[in-house]
Amino acid sequence: MSNYIPNTFINSFSLLGDHLRHPDTELKEIIETEKLYNAWFTPESVSASVAAIAEHLSHANLSKWTASYNLNANHAPKHIGLILAGNIPLVGFHDIMCVLLSGNHALIKASSQDTRLIKYILNKLVSIDARFSNRFTFVEKLQNFDAVIATGSDNSSRYFEYYFGKVPHIIRKNRNSLAVLTGHETAEQLHALGHDIFDYYGLGCRNVSKLMVPQGFNFTPFFEAIESYQPIINHHKYNNNYDYNKSVYLVNSDKHLDNGFLLVKEDTRLSSPLAVLFFEYYDSLASAEKTINMNSEKIQCVVSGGALKVNAQVVDFGKSQRPGLADYADGIDTMKFLADL
Rank of each mutant, 00 (worst) to 15 (best):
Asp95Pro: 14
Leu122Ala: 08
His56Glu: 14
Leu36Ala: 12
Phe164Arg: 09
Phe13Ser: 10
Glu224Lys: 15
Ala187Ile: 09
Asn295Glu: 14
Asp340Lys: 10
His59Leu: 13
Val276Asp: 00
Met97Asp: 04
Val315Thr: 07
Leu27Ile: 05
Phe261Pro: 02
Asp316Asn: 14
Phe261Met: 05
Tyr163Ala: 05
Pro231Gly: 06
Gln143Ser: 15
Asp330Met: 10
Lys35Gly: 08
Val180Ile: 11
Thr334Cys: 10
Ile5Arg: 13
Val302Tyr: 02
Asn134Trp: 03
Met335Pro: 08
Thr182Ala: 12
Ala147Ile: 01
Leu338Asp: 05
Asp196Ala: 06
Gly305Arg: 07
Glu44His: 11
Val99Gly: 10
Tyr242Trp: 03
Glu140Gln: 15
Ala39Thr: 12
Ile170Ala: 08
Thr137Val: 09
Asn176Met: 07
Gly202Lys: 11
Asn174Met: 08
Asp114Ile: 11
Leu82Asp: 07
Val50Gln: 02
Leu142Val: 03
Asn104Pro: 00
Lys319Ile: 00
Ser45Val: 14
Thr66Asp: 03
Gln143Cys: 12
Asn207Leu: 06
Ile226Pro: 06
Tyr159Met: 07
His75Met: 08
Cys205Gln: 05
Tyr281Ile: 00
Asn104Thr: 07
Lys298Thr: 09
Asn87Tyr: 03
Gly318Val: 02
Val46Gly: 04
Asp199Met: 08
Asn70Tyr: 10
Gly305Val: 00
Leu341Tyr: 02
Glu161Asp: 15
Phe138Arg: 04
Leu122Phe: 09
His191Glu: 15
